[in-house]
Design a protein around this nucleic acid. Structure first.
Lengths: 200, 200
DNA sequence: TTCGTCATGTAATGGGTTACATGATTAC
DNA sequence: GTAATCATGTAACCCATTACATGACGAA
């Protein structure tokens, strides 16, 4: 299990909340991570199969395919579904993957982990945030160095490109800082709707 | 040639300027796109091989490997290099890949194309910029819809995630708008060193 | 009855990552 | 003389994408 596919973590994370089948999983993924995160079936189902083979999930309910209910009854019939449930082994795997700070620096992995931060302790959260921050800071430094070194030799488009990247990175760092601050004093919430008396 | 690897375009683009060997190519890639863009050898050399097989590039100079110059002479010796030169076919392929607005919407492809914008006519540039803008605008709309629909059901981390993504997307759009504006009236440049009389 | 959504898969393809392997040249 | 950098590749693995294939269910 060198590098589990990206999907393993979010799938297990969603199954922690409740049993789901593939189709549903995909929608929830979109709801949590944003609509742009559209995984393909050819990616999702194999992941489920892999997880099942690894003992991390198990099939719990499948309504038989072409089995029509006895005429008159309608409760037992239904669309063919394969519902998955996370196992204890899967829970352990999830915890390990989530905590591991190894390769969690890049945007995708960090995003995925952040989406399941509620399953991490405060210390682990801060560790991950700091690590991501360090990575971004390093990237920022490299970008600056690179610009200093090549500014003259690249054209205005490449320049604009790197400049924008630099600004984005700075914005990312500011965001991480915000998250870190909130993590350190949870009381200072975003002052959620100071409504004195009336309801919206 | 359904979907040429991402490297084809930048490799050809760099070779348009001058002949280079693999190792150099990698450095120039970093200089142009930013240091984070570190392609692996296992990716670069196969790309070169593919391009050579497709007739898009050709090897022009290779200093023989273990051939030591006759003792005394030192001019003919050198490190083993395999220098590539772009062919006419390669130029054509490059032009096609650069112009094609098909899948050019995602961040990576757009980045790659922008880096070689100087090889495109103003109309094609604007077309690509507009296309990218439309894509981002669509993403923005989807993000907003998604947030409206799921805001209640996702936790604060996922919320923060999507929120930040939303802001980043807006920032990206603003940047594209800037590029579009500059493209439309090139005179309003960033006032690059207004030097009154002296020649370039 | 037909369309859209729900629902689940398989097969081929292909490229990227990682690790491995090798050796020359330069600078200290 | 040895470490760092230059330089080029190969091999295995694996996952994601794409296209293909199938079929039930609900609504119009």
């Amino acid at each position: 299990m060198k590098q589990p596919g990206v999907l393993e973590l979010p799938v297990l994370g969603l199954l922690k909340e409740r049993d789901m089948h593939g189709y549903e999983l995909r929608k929830q993924l979109g709801a949590m991570l944003g609509p742009f995160w559209q995984v393909s079936w050819g990616s999702l189902y194999p992941t489920l199969r892999r997880l099942a083979k690894a003992g991390a999930v198990e099939k719990v309910e499948m309504v038989a395919p072409r089995r029509r209910a006895a005429r008159g009854g309608k409760a037992t019939t239904g669309r063919r579904k394969t519902v998955y449930r996370i196992t204890q082994q899967g829970e352990d795997m999830f915890a390990l993957m989530l905590e591991e700070t190894g390769a969690a620096v890049d945007h995708e992995h960090f995003t995925l982990k952040l989406a399941f931060f509620r399953y991490l302790g405060p210390e682990a959260r801060l560790a991950l945030l700091e690590r991501r921050r360090a990575y971004l800071q390093d990237k920022l430094a490299q970008l600056k160095t690179n610009l200093r070194e090549y500014r003259e030799r690249i054209d205005s488009y490449a320049l604009s490109l790197q400049n924008h990247d630099l600004l984005s990175t700075q914005s990312d760092i500011a965001w991480i800082d915000e998250l870190i601050t909130k993590e350190r004093n949870p009381n200072l919430g975003p002052a959620p709707e100071a409504r004195p008396t009336s309801s919206p």
